[in-house]
């Protein structure tokens, strides 16, 4: 995951395209790291931004899917995990916690890292959110997810 508010972004992002007919209501955000991190005390959170005219330039697109498994419609929102260009620099909305740097063999605990957003952030067309990290995380280490609802504008 890239550092903080860089517009050239790698991580997990979710965008509501300009011109869409829905608002994107965030319900849950989850994240985990599968290898040890390089910098102690990396703070993780959620950042967001908005552009009325320019969409995220998607890299490494992820195919979003309905939670009505197999038979639900295709969502309008877009998501990706590869190198993307955000239309404007985002700002931090919420702090989730911090990641330490120990070996992943030290503990077998699994602290829950699922955040109930409960609809407290809405992305109108042109809005986007992305996982935030104070420093670049170790390569290929982040696995994260968004759950959202799409409601007519």
């Amino acid at each position: 995951m890239s550092i903080a508010f860089a517009t050239t972004y790698i991580g997990l992002y979710l965008g509501n395209p300009v011109g869409s007919t829905i608002n994107c209501v965030l319900l849950k955000v989850a994240y985990g790291f599968i290898i040890a991190q390089p910098a102690a005390g990396t703070i993780i959170g959620l950042m967001g931004g908005y552009s009325a005219s320019t969409n995220i330039t998607v890299g490494g697109a992820i195919t979003p899917r309905s939670n009505m498994i197999g038979i639900g419609p295709t969502p309008q929102c877009i998501a990706g995990a590869g190198s993307a260009t955000l239309p404007i620099a985002p700002t931090l909305f919420q702090v989730f916690g911090s990641v330490l740097t120990g070996a992943i063999t030290v503990s077998n605990t699994n602290p829950l890292c699922v955040v109930d957003m409960e609809g407290s952030i809405i992305l109108p067309p042109g809005g986007f959110v992305a996982l935030y990290s104070t420093v670049a995380t170790a390569a290929s280490s982040l696995v994260a997810s968004f759950t959202w609802e799409e409601v007519p504008v």
Binding site: Y31, G32, F33, A36, Q37, A40, G41, I44, Q94, V95, F96, G97, S98, V99, L100, T101, G102, A103, I104, V106, S107, T109, N110, P111, L112, C113, V114, V115, D116
Partner: peptide
């Protein structure tokens, strides 16, 4: 003793 004891990330966000 250090921030390197674990790599866990307990959620520190309160509802």
């Amino acid at each position: 003793s250090a921030l390197t004891i674990t790599n866990t990330s307990p959620l520190t966000m309160m509802d």
